[in-house]
Amino acid sequence: MIDSKWTRKDELIDILLDLKHDFGKYLFLHLSHLTADSPEDMIREALRTALFETRRISGTVRTAEEIWGQYRSEIDALKYAFNGYDRLVQCVDDALSLHRFLIPESAPHPPHVGHIHKVARQVSEVIAQIIAEENSDR
């Protein structure tokens, strides 16, 4: 008989891998070309693309928030408790909150590019940690 806990864990890992892929590829890649010397306009444009034109496929555009919303609802529907849930939500929220730097009136200077990269990259890193933790007790 298949233990439903393992089944749900496998499903969770599947979802996390997809999320890692989407945030790694679609969000981070749009920001990866920025350097410490990049002008503020370029930084804002890259952030806008990364957050609001995160994924383009077959003529449709999806935002980072929509992508996260889809995966979060799939994770919640599993009803599977895992230790890294809060860390995951926090790091994705940190990445999504970069949008506050898009409007010069509310944030005259965007953050340092190193900070942007760190926040964007953290999603992949946290997911990798969670997957490793989940796999360790098999």
Binding site: Y26, L29, H30, H33, R56, I57, S58
Partner: peptide, 12 residues
């Protein structure tokens, strides 16, 4: 299946 990489390569 999407054009993220295509856009990236074209631009950068």
């Amino acid at each position: 299946d999407g054009d993220t990489y295509a856009q990236l390569i074209r631009e950068q």
